[in-house]
Amino acid sequence: MSRRLAVENLQRAFGGVQAVRGVSFVLGAGEVLALIGPNGAGKTTCFNLLNGQLRPDAGTVRLDGVDIVGLPPRRIWRMGVGRTFQITATFASMTVRENVQMVLLSVHRRLFGLWNPAAAGFRDEAMALLERVGMGAQAERPCGVLAYGDLKRVELAMALAGDPKVLLMDEPTAGMAPGERQELMALTSSLVRERGLAVLFTEHDMDVVFGHATRIIVLDRGQLIAEGTPDAVRADPRVQAVYLGGAA
C-alpha cells in the first residue's frame, strides 16, 4: 500500500479558538479512511486545510511526498486531490452532464474557447462517468432540480472527472435514504479498488462508517483521540465517551 497523503501536526485557530490541534495521519492508496467525531470537532476544517481552502497555522500536508500547504485549491486539485462537499456545491444553472463536462474542460485546460459550444466537448467521457455513478438517465436534467441524493452522485462523478489520486468526501451520504447510502458507499469502495484511489470521508451515519471504512480516525475538539480498525474504534472507551455518548 503506497502512501498518498501524509498529514503532520496540522494546526488551525479561528479568533483564538483552536479548531484543529496537532492532527497527524497518513492515507494510502486503496484505503477508505473515515474521519468521525461529534459536531464541531473540526472535521470540515480539516478537510478545508487539506484541499487548500484554508491555510494551516502550522503543520505539513504531503501529497506523494510533495508539500502542498499554501497552494490554492485549484492547484491542489490539479495535483490530484478531488473533493465533494458537505453541502452540495454543483453548478446549479447547468445540466448534470454539463457539470461533468465543465470539470473535463478544466482538466484539458479548454476554459477559454469563445466559439465552439461547450456542450459538445468531452460528451462521451462525461456520459461514461455519469453511467458509472448511476446518473446516466438524468444527464439532461438541470442540477438545480435534482434530489439531494442524486446531487451527491453528480458530485462524485465531478470528482472522478478530475481523475484524482486522493478523494476527500465530506459527509457523502447526508440527506440520502438508507438504501442509497449503502449503494453510494459500495460504489465508492469499488472505485477505490478499480482506480487505486485513496478516500478520506466524514460521516455521521455509523452504519456507513462501520460498514465501509477500512480504517477510522476519531476527532474530538480538534484532536485525534483514536485510530484503528472499525472494531478497535468501536471498542475504544474514549470514543464511546465523547462520541457515541451516554447511549452506549
Binding site: Q53, W77, R83, M102, L114, A118
Partner: peptide, 20 residues
C-alpha cells in the same frame, strides 16, 4: 462556449469552481 460556461461556473459556486 467554454468561456461562458466557466464564467457561469464561477458564479454558481465559486467554491466548486476553484476546487476543479
Amino acid at each position: 462556449a467554454p468561456f461562458g460556461y466557466t464564467l457561469r461556473a464561477g458564479r454558481d459556486s465559486t467554491l466548486r469552481a476553484e476546487s476543479v
